[in-house]
């Protein structure tokens, strides 16, 4: 069970990002978890609570988006979603394929937080822009 190690890495990255932005309380951490990541969701949720203790993430919810394996079938010339991780064959034509398009993800996507902000906040855009744009 390496989910505790994974949880500590996750918390380290997320809390550093939060600290660098001056965030004091995180509500939700969004994670993408591929079916081939080797991580068990329930074990990770359990470990997360432990790892988050005493950090800016304490009490936050880990929201996991599970991603199935997607392979590229060279015969169909198409990406196909596999129903599980035990048969790496195109579910349509049966061609064996190990060409993975999706499924290895173990990625922190974003943090949701609620920060007390001074009111009024004249320099913030009215649509409530969300910090740094992706990339």
């Amino acid at each position: 069970m390496h989910e505790l190690s994974i949880a500590y890495s996750l918390v380290e990255i997320a809390s550093q990002a939060a600290d660098s932005m001056g965030i004091r309380r995180v509500d939700v951490v969004h994670l993408r978890l591929g079916a081939l990541s080797g991580v068990v969701q329930d074990a990770l949720l359990f470990a997360y609570e432990i790892a988050a203790k005493g950090t800016v993430l304490e009490g936050s919810r880990l929201a996991i988006q599970e991603l199935p394996v997607v392979v590229h079938c060279s015969r169909c010339q198409a990406d196909r979603t596999l129903p599980g991780i035990q048969h790496f064959r195109c579910p349509v034509c049966g061609e064996p394929t190990g060409q993975i398009v999706q499924g290895r993800e173990l990625e922190i996507v974003s943090l949701e937080y609620t920060d007390p902000v001074p009111e009024p906040a004249p320099c913030r855009s009215p649509n409530g822009s969300t910090g740094k744009p992706p990339r």
Binding site: I6, I23, I108, V109, S110, E112, E119
Partner: peptide
Amino acid sequence: MGENTRPRLLEIRQGVL
């Protein structure tokens, strides 16, 4: 409190490992 709260999002996009 004299303070407002608003939910915000911080993009990270980083592999845990």
